[in-house]
Design a protein around this nucleic acid. Sequence first.
DNA 1: TGACACCGACCGGCCGGACGGTACAGTTCC
DNA 2: GGAACTGTACCGTCCGGCCGGTCGGTGTCA
Lengths: 209, 209
Amino acid sequence: MPESTPNAQSSADLLISAAERVVVRQGISNVTLESVAAEAGMSKGGLLHHFPSKDALIRAMVERAAANWVTCYESAYAQTPEGPGRMARAVLGHCLSDAECWTDELRSSSSAVFAALAQNPTLIEPMRAAYAKLHEYIAQDGLPEGVSETVVTAIDGLWLDWVLGLVPLDQARVVRVRRALSELLKQHGAPVQAMDAAGCAKVHGTRNA
Amino acid sequence: MPESTPNAQSSADLLISAAERVVVRQGISNVTLESVAAEAGMSKGGLLHHFPSKDALIRAMVERAAANWVTCYESAYAQTPEGPGRMARAVLGHCLSDAECWTDELRSSSSAVFAALAQNPTLIEPMRAAYAKLHEYIAQDGLPEGVSETVVTAIDGLWLDWVLGLVPLDQARVVRVRRALSELLKQHGAPVQAMDAAGCAKVHGTRNA
DNA sequence: TGACACCGACCGGCCGGACGGTACAGTTCC
DNA sequence: GGAACTGTACCGTCCGGCCGGTCGGTGTCA
């Protein structure tokens, strides 16, 4: 039973990681069954043995990325003290804490979303559901209307500006926006804890650079 | 000189608008020379007469969208009273004012960006430059570090969440975030003027629904 | 007659997917 | 123990279709 050996990853997981790497390195238009299979050191026939179609492959990419994202913010939530703005503080404190987070976890989510966008927009559904769940937390976060929402929306803006290439990655900008958002929360009586950079990496499931 | 007749649009402009419509209605993967030409009521050969390659077509899409965006925020800036946070107030007051703006101007920018992303990521350069210019204004907006930046970043987040389909379009959410951002600006001594819904439509160049 | 806008047939390449294999690791039966 | 069988993972070839781009036209207006 190969699954029980340490660090074992299923062929499906290896193929998904390979697809993410192809998106990041070669762009969406180069995501073909052949290129993904080659990246994973497998033949196209082998890939199609695990995923019966390209849609199925990309669906699996999105599902994994969405699950990682839910794990990320729910884990951060669990580590954050109770009180008003708990989810806003969680996301701000744990999912925006240092540059490592951005290149690892978020790259993989964005790969999946863009691959889905290009292949078949309905495939982003799992990621949409992950966001819907986050916004449920946000809606009952206990702060005045729109405050927690603004925090997570601004973080989304940072992330998407970056991955789309609209604004170059600038860690100083991340820090400035984080400070402004922290102050916004503090003014509403929801002070953000000191950042825990290590905590960010810990909650991410992806380990496939 | 056909250019001088009222409401005249060059064939190139008509083709760009057709390409945007194809992106919105049929998705990026269906943006082919044939589909764009058909949407514009022209043959593929005709399209290639105006744009020698698909890259050239998409480059033109991005250039037009970027120019519209620059016009949008610079026009808003010109209409906004001087003082700290002028550009933040401008963008918040004029580029986020009602639902019409979102479906018209921003859809077209996003179409161009996504088409470029799929075709050849280097083609987004003009839009990147438009953002760089905006961030120059923002950097010397006269508010404490990160405040104006947070405003425009949150607006980007709203826009991109929407066009990517991560969060459904919800005008109430737009209003809530706008209020929170307005309050943030007010707390820094930069009160946003009353919204002028009509002012938004006026600054947009695209008239091609 | 020639410049310009446009047409439409065609080509070459790529890509998704189908399919018929092969290798090999159990399991069953004698 | 070993022969026969079974299922799983994977390979390599092929096909049909689509798509970007070329090219030799045609109509029209000055």
